[in-house]
Design a protein around this nucleic acid. Structure first.
Length: 672
DNA sequence: GAGCACTGC
């Protein structure tokens, strides 16, 4: 590997030091002691084994004898279900008995359940009805180092709960590096006490690092300015000179995956006859499930798999048989511009934690090798952990949820990492303009609390809650459910984009994308048309799994509204809105305006759009029916920048008068 | 004119 090549940057090895292993029995005793003695225990370096074992230790040590439960939160549904299944097996019980899981749409628990795995987002929802989490004696937050929005918020709230409940035990599981930060955050400051405990008495760190196979790390001797070319080079070198074992290559997105696979395909042709072949396979979240399956199938005789993946392979998806990891050192991360309200996807260097996680993917079954396409000095210069999501997201949904939990002052809230105040202010502004927050900064009742309860972003929640007034509740339920699919409804089954566009045209209407998606939902669920079948989806370039999800989401939304006592035909509540002779399309268009007035734009003669203030040039996303058609005023669901161009997605035509009619305050201010 | 990193309720 270390030979000079055209790119002038050979890979050099870092000497590998075998880690010391802590005997499992000793680990158990230390953990049980720590959790007994300290309200807060931070566990460093636990992998799947420990995540499954620790709650069982606690269960067997009597932490649920008083009838309470142990909660283990996960950032992803798949982890909650798979780890709970494993624990149930180890306990020798049926899943849903002593061990179970609870995720959105699926509650596999019973009165007997003692160990409950759930997503961190769902535990946050539980806090609405049980703010002190009284049913749990221990809450374990797994994968805290990922710094997801919900696990960060959960830790803030747990910090408060701990002060009110000296009996509660919080266990935070993190991969290396950040342990001190979590402990500092949850424990009292130096010299202070909480429930009569000093910082030293309040929490402890237990380290169980190094239980996987060793992975040799190689770095470049000098940086490269074309990591894709270097990646192709490295992959080919591994393939021709290293022993058996599949390769996992991390790049940043779909386009890079396609490019890389094309380049590899060109190089494969040059391989000598009779040599082992290389099979490149793409893996990214947007890939339809049937195509993702190839990645998990064993390669044929004399074939080496090369999986070219996004970050999905870093933690969400695990592939057996990976011995070699090639890490370009980059990732695509979301950034939110609070001034323009635009989301961006930026390619940025990974964090040390990410790089370590990526390398670890090579050592799951036996010792492996990781090739980092950057220098050791570059690695040392990386941020230790990924920038927390709370510092780079649209915070309107979070702010709404926190207010509904009784948090009044969002600026002074005790965050694990403070979000930039511009993000908080922007969120409050939006919530105010939607009527969820009053002039005093308090959540309104019932509108604000209802919006917070719905599992929808605020603008969509507001729209749905307005639907009865326009006599289009049923339609808006379907549209809301389809919007949660985030553009995944249509899909190419064989890479044929033309078929997809043809299919889209079959459902398209002149009013725009929302009603087009409504037509898709109607057709899919119609017993005489789509019959909720995968076959029909295939024929219409539709994503079967996504549409099934829409059906579930719609049911759930319907349940929420039923519980709120919201039904169709609440027309009498507002005689200002005359919907009598109005077409259903117009009712939906007007209703959408009441939630998305802040996302209004007008098409210019060149086909681009401008916002009301006229400061930004926008383009219809290629998936919109207005990519090709003319329009005047529209509202859009989402705005995102890609490659320097700002795209708006999911557009529906509106009349300018509706904007001032339904949002007079908002447009009065804007026009000054 | 030509495109979503990844999760979650």
């Amino acid at each position: 590997m270390a030979e000079e090549d055209d790119l002038g940057a050979p890979l050099i090895a870092e000497l590998h030091k075998p880690p010391a292993l802590l005997p499992i029995a000793q680990l158990k005793d230390r953990l049980l002691y720590a959790i007994e003695a300290f309200p807060v225990t931070i566990i460093v370096g636990a992998c799947i084994n420990e995540t499954a074992q620790i709650p069982q230790y606690l269960f067997k040590a009597g932490w649920t004898n008083d009838g309470s439960q142990i909660a283990v939160t996960q950032p992803r549904r798949i982890a909650a279900t798979s780890v709970s299944a494993r624990v149930a097996e180890e306990l020798g019980c049926q899943l849903g008995q002593e061990a179970g899981y609870s995720i959105r749409f699926e509650d596999v628990t019973s009165e007997k359940t003692k160990i409950k795995f759930l997503t961190d987002g769902l535990l946050l929802r539980e806090m609405l009805v049980d703010p002190l989490l009284k049913r749990y004696s221990v809450v374990m937050v797994d994968e805290a180092h990922e710094r997801s929005l919900s696990s960060d918020i959960l830790l803030s709230l747990l910090k408060k709960v701990l002060r009110a409940r000296p009996d509660l035990r919080v266990v935070v599981s993190s991969a290396t590096l950040d342990a001190e930060k979590f402990l500092d955050f949850l424990a009292p400051d130096d010299g202070e006490t909480i429930n009569n405990k000093t910082k030293e008495e309040y929490g402890t760190i237990v380290s169980i690092e190094g239980r996987t196979h060793p992975v040799d790390i190689f770095y470049l001797s000098s940086s490269t300015n074309n990591y894709i070319e270097k990646a192709v080079e490295t992959v080919m070198n591994i393939h021709t000179s290293e022993a058996d074992g599949d390769i996992l290559l991390f790049v940043t997105g779909r386009e890079e995956i396609d490019d890389t696979i094309d380049m590899i395909a060109d190089r494969i042709v040059d391989l000598p006859h009779g040599s082992r072949s290389l099979q490149p396979l793409p893996l990214y979240a947007g890939l339809p499930t049937d195509q993702q399956m190839y990645v998990f199938q064993k390669a044929g005789e004399n074939v080496r798999k090369l999986i070219v993946a996004t970050n999905i392979a870093e933690a969400s998806v695990t592939i057996e048989g990976i011995i070699y990891v090639v890490d370009t050192g980059y990732v695509k991360l979301r950034a939110y511009d609070p001034v323009l309200g635009i989301e961006r996807l930026n390619v940025v260097p990974v964090s040390k934690a990410s790089a370590t996680q990526r390398a670890g993917r090579a050592g799951r079954t036996k010792p492996g090798k990781c090739y980092r396409l950057y220098t050791e000095a570059d690695f040392e210069a990386l941020e230790s952990a990924t920038f927390p999501e709370i510092q780079r997201s649209n915070l309107a949904p979070v702010v709404l949820q926190l207010m509904n939990l009784g948090i009044q002052n969002l600026v002074r809230f005790d965050y694990l990492s403070n979000p930039p105040s511009a993000l908080v202010v922007r969120a409050l502004d939006l919530l105010f303009s939607l009527g969820a927050v009053d002039i005093h900064g308090r959540l309104t009742k019932p509108l604000g609390t209802r919006m917070a309860e719905l599992p929808l972003e605020p603008m969509l929640a507001r729209t749905l809650l307005n639907a009865p007034t326009f006599g289009c509740l049923s339609e808006m339920l379907s549209i809301s459910a389809m919007m949660t699919l985030q553009g995944t409804a249509f899909v190419t089954h064989d890479g044929n984009q033309k078929l997809l566009e043809k299919a889209r045209r079959r459902f398209a209407v002149k009013e725009g994308d929302h009603i087009t998606l409504y037509n898709v939902y109607q057709a899919f669920t119609n017993p005489a048309v789509g019959k909720q079948s995968s076959q029909w989806c295939r024929e219409n370039s539709l994503n079967y799994k996504a549409l099934l999800k829409a059906v579930s989401v719609r049911k759930q939304l319907r349940n929420y509204l039923d519980r709120m006592g919201i039904q169709e035909n609440a027309l009498a509540s507002s005689d200002a809105i005359r919907v009598g002779g109005m077409s259903m399309a117009e009712r939906v268009q007007r209703c959408l305006t009441t939630g998305f007035f802040a996302h209004a734009a007008r098409m210019k003669s060149d086909g681009s759009f401008v916002t009301v203030g006229g400061e930004t040039v926008l383009w219809a996303h290629p998936s919109s029916i207005f990519f090709h058609r003319k329009a005047d005023w529209v509202i859009y669901h989402e705005i995102q920048e890609a490659k320097g161009k700002v795209y708006i997605r999911d557009l529906t035509t509106v009349e300018m008068d509706w904007l001032t009619e339904y949002a007079p305050e908002y447009y009065k201010v804007k026009q000054k």
